Simulated scan of single mutants.
Amino acid sequence: MKNVLILCTGNSCRSQMAQGYIAHFAGNTAQIYSAGIETHGLNTNAVKFMAEDGIDISTHTSNHVDEYEGIAWDFIITVCDHANEHCPYIPAPSAKRLHQNFTDPSKVQGTEAEIAAAFRSTREEIKAYSKDFAATYLS
């Protein structure tokens, strides 16, 4: 079984969404973790808009990358430029490191409809990436 770490700045939104989708598409082929270089708590809109697509992330927790010290990573995926640039060193010499920046929908300000559109757009981008990642590396 592969170990996959998904990193974002606050582990509240994008990394949580990616964890939900990659776990969904990977099935029993991998253990999926998400973490942040900070912890900001689980974003309620991320939970809401993932549930809208049938993925329940409501029991996820916001974790700091240091909490997973000692796990032998097969993949480390950063999902925001900030985490990619500021992530502490993770000793995983054999891990394949991937980076894909996704727009942070939690930063969008506007009407409820504009916020919903931002979350749905980012969700769909993460879903497509996650499906491709699972098919390419975990099948």
Rank of each mutant, 00 (worst) to 15 (best):
Q100F: 15
A135T: 10
E112Y: 06
E112I: 04
E112M: 06
V108L: 02
N84W: 09
A128R: 04
I90L: 10
Y89C: 06
S94V: 09
K127D: 06
R123K: 08
I115A: 00
P88E: 04
R123M: 03
F102V: 10
A92P: 11
N101F: 15
A116G: 05
S94I: 07
P88S: 02
H82T: 13
R97D: 02
A135I: 10
R97A: 03
Q109Y: 15
A113H: 05
R123F: 01
C80D: 15
L98H: 10
P105W: 07
S94R: 03
K127A: 02
R123L: 00
Y129F: 14
Y89E: 12
A92Q: 02
T111H: 08
R120A: 07
T103D: 15
A134M: 04
S106N: 10
R123I: 01
T122S: 12
D81V: 07
C80N: 12
Q100M: 10
H82V: 11
H99I: 10
A135E: 15
G110N: 00
A128V: 00
I115K: 05
S94P: 03
K107M: 10
E125V: 06
C87F: 04
H82D: 03
P91E: 13
A117E: 14
P91H: 14
S130I: 04
R120F: 10
R97Y: 12
D132L: 07
K131N: 05
G110R: 01
S106G: 14
A95K: 01
Y129I: 02
N101T: 14
I90S: 00
S130W: 03
K127N: 02
Q109D: 15
S94L: 10
E112K: 06
Q109G: 13
L98N: 08
Y89A: 14
I126K: 01
A95W: 05
S94T: 14
V79M: 00
V79I: 13
H82M: 13
A135K: 14
Q100H: 14
E112G: 09
E124H: 11
S130N: 05
R123E: 08
A134T: 03
S106H: 03
H82E: 03
V108C: 05
N84C: 13
E85P: 02
A128K: 10
F119Q: 06
A135S: 12
A128W: 00
A117C: 06
E114L: 07
Q109V: 15
P105N: 07
T111L: 04
Y129P: 01
H82Y: 13
